[in-house]
Simulated assay, not measured.
Amino acid sequence: MLDTGLIVYPGFQVLGLSMCATFEIANTLAQREVYGITLLSERGGLVKTSAGFAVETEAFDARRFDTLLVMGDNVVRPVSPGMSAYLRTASAITRRLGSICTGADALAQAGLLDGRRATTHWCHARELQKNYPSIKVEEDRIFINDGPIWTAAGMSACVDLSLALVENDLGEELARMVSKQLVVYHRRAGGQSQFSVMQDLAPKSDRIQVVLTYARQHLKADLSVESLAQVANMSPRQFSRVFTSETGQSPAKAVENLRVEAARLMMEAGSHTVDAVAHEAGFGDQERMRRAFIRAFGQPPQVFRRAHRP
C-alpha cells in the first residue's frame, strides 16, 4: 500500500481535500487498497480549514510515507520551524514530496526546491521567485514534476496533480477511468497554462459564449465574421459590434488567440509535426502560425517545443 500523507495547518484551503476522492476511486477501480490516506499536522488533533470547519489529524512522527503532499492556502503564511524540520527529515525516506498552491513555500523554506523547477498559484509565483531565487518558478504551469518533487498550481490543480500521481503509479488507463468517475476531463497536462483565452474573453451573454465555444471546437473551420454571425443568429455588423463590446477583442483577434492557445499546447506536447499543428489549429500553413505566435509571444512556435523537451 502507498501510504499518502496530506499535510495541513490552520486555515489551509479546503479544496485540497478533493484529492482524497481521486485516491479513493483509484482504490475502488483497482479493487485493492493502493492508497492509504492520512491527514497530518504538526501537533495533531483538530485543524480548521479555510471554510471554518475542522478535520482530525495525526501529529508528525517518524512514520514513513510513500508520498507527502503539503496543502495550499488562500494566502502565504509563515512556515513553522517544525514543519520545515519534518519535511527535511521526510525527504530522505519519502519517495515523493509535493505541494499544492502556496504549499510550495513550505518545500522552498525546507530547501527542497533549490535548483529545481516548481510552480504555485499564479498570483503568488513572483513572490516565491523573489524570496527563493535558486528555484526556477514557472508561474504558467498546472503542475511540474522535477525528480521526486511535484508542485501544483492553486485551487482545482490539486485534482490534476492527484490524477497525475495515480497515472504515475497505476497507468494512464486507470487514471482515465478515475477522471471519468470524478466527472472531470482527463487531467490537464502539467505544461498546460494556468490561464485560458476563454477566461480572458469572459463574454457577458450566452449568445457570445456559444460562439466562442463553437469556435474553440471548430478551429479548422471557416471562422470568419460572417460564419460566426450565423452561429449567433445575428447580422455580421451587429455580431461584430456586440462581440467586441463584450470581450474587448474583435472576432478575428479572438479566433487567432484561440488558435494560438491550441497550437501552443500541441507544440509543448511535442507529439505533432509543425505542419500538423498548423493544420489542426486552423492556421492552414506554418507561416501564418509563425506570424501569429510572434504577435502573441514575440517568439516562433518552435521555441515552445524546445523549452518542453525532456
Rank of each mutant, 00 (worst) to 15 (best):
C158P: 08
A108H: 13
A292P: 10
A30W: 08
V277F: 00
T28N: 02
A110M: 04
V70W: 07
K48S: 05
V178M: 10
S156I: 10
R216V: 03
A157P: 09
A202N: 01
S80T: 13
T28A: 15
A26K: 08
R295M: 10
K180V: 00
L87C: 03
F53S: 06
A30E: 03
L170S: 01
Y214C: 06
T22N: 07
G298Q: 12
T273Y: 06
G98Q: 05
M289K: 12
G284H: 08
P203D: 10
Y132S: 03
R95N: 02
R116F: 12
E56V: 13
F23R: 01
A221M: 05
E167D: 11
S156P: 02
L29R: 07
F65C: 10
A278S: 10
D73N: 03
V70A: 09
L15E: 03
R77S: 14
S250P: 07
K130M: 01
Y185E: 02
S224T: 14
L174K: 01
I25S: 00
T102W: 03
M198I: 00
G82L: 14
L163V: 02
V178G: 01
K48N: 00
E24D: 05
R77D: 06
G111I: 09
Q249S: 09
P310M: 06
R95L: 07
I7R: 15
A90Y: 02
C123M: 11
A221E: 03
R264M: 13
A254I: 15
G270Y: 12
S84W: 10
